[in-house]
Nucleic acid binder design. Structure first.
Ligand SMILES: [Zn+2]
Ligand SMILES: [Zn+2]
Ligand SMILES: [Zn+2]
Ligand SMILES: [Zn+2]
Lengths: 146, 146
DNA sequence: TACCTTATGAGATTAAGTATCATCCACAAA
DNA sequence: TTTGTGGATGATACTTAATCTCATAAGGTA
């Protein structure tokens, strides 16, 4: 478990939002896994213990948790949004074959100062999106070639 | 225009794929704009000249052009996939408010060697996903605050 | 407890993308 | 130039991801 219940309670209280059972369960589910689940992944996992939670509530709880910075979204190419409870800055490795997403540490890049752009944007954050094949997909590819 | 028609013909020929009018028009549309359009953006633009092109064909043409490396996809948070005809390595600035995507030059990062990871992935490419507010959205935010 | 605000569940709805299939077209061989 | 063949196209049905609506339920406080 990433944080105690007290942490959740104080965060919600400081934002003036009610901490419901559903939000607690959704947060705990995402925080307890390392696979950057989609909303539906969370729904299916949570359903085992709480079959009464609706899909819409899972979506709404995830949105809420992103708003108050307890979760973040992981960028990808148009498939379902994935969620991440690790809030320290890190980057992601995407398998182009099976779609799995793993955390990676690319070192302290500190890219913001390097960003040369005269577009007038104010830049708040960045993430690096690495793409390639995971070990399983490499193996599968090798087997197919023989 | 980014490339001559000969370039398209030779690329398709080298891949053994037929170069249809639809594929040509879709490529020219994406290559002629700087706004990283979605499939629907392309459909709407192309429809003015070619009202007979179906949506499914636009999707298929875009997929085909990505396969043969004439276009690439831009990563984002779950909204519609955006396409890019600029094939030199570059990064993207995303407005968190209105969703627009602009090209940025973050310098020669050469991140692949810096990627420390023992996950067994083979890394092919990467892109940096900067997020913040575009000039218009900054202005809008300032106006709302007063 | 009682009150008020906000969240929830159920289900309809939208948006993005994919699948199916009969017909058509690009391309090359004759 | 004609013909043949595989692949592409248009129409449309379908799937998936996500959002909206609204009556009801639950969180937070006084
Ligand atoms: Zn994989
Ligand atoms: Zn992560
Ligand atoms: Zn904007
Ligand atoms: Zn670009």
């Amino acid at each position: 478990m990433a944080h105690s219940t007290d942490f959740l309670e104080s965060t919600f209280k400081s934002k003036g939002l009610p901490l419901t059972v559903q939000r607690r369960v959704v947060y705990q589910n995402v925080a307890s896994r390392q696979d950057h689940p989609t909303a539906d992944d969370v729904y299916l996992a949570v359903q085992k213990e709480h079959p009464d939670f609706s899909r819409a509530t899972i979506y709404r709880a995830l949105d809420c948790l992103v708003q108050i910075d307890l979760l973040s979204r992981v960028a990808s190419f148009g498939s379902a949004v994935r969620y991440d409870a690790k809030q320290e800055h890190h980057d992601h490795m995407h398998c182009t074959q099976c779609g799995q997403v793993a955390d990676v540490e690319a070192g302290d890049l500190n890219l913001l100062p390097k960003l040369k752009q005269d577009l007038g944007f104010t830049v708040e954050t960045y993430s690096v999106h690495f793409r390639g094949l995971c070990p399983e997909c490499q193996l599968e590819k090798t087997n197919k070639e023989n």
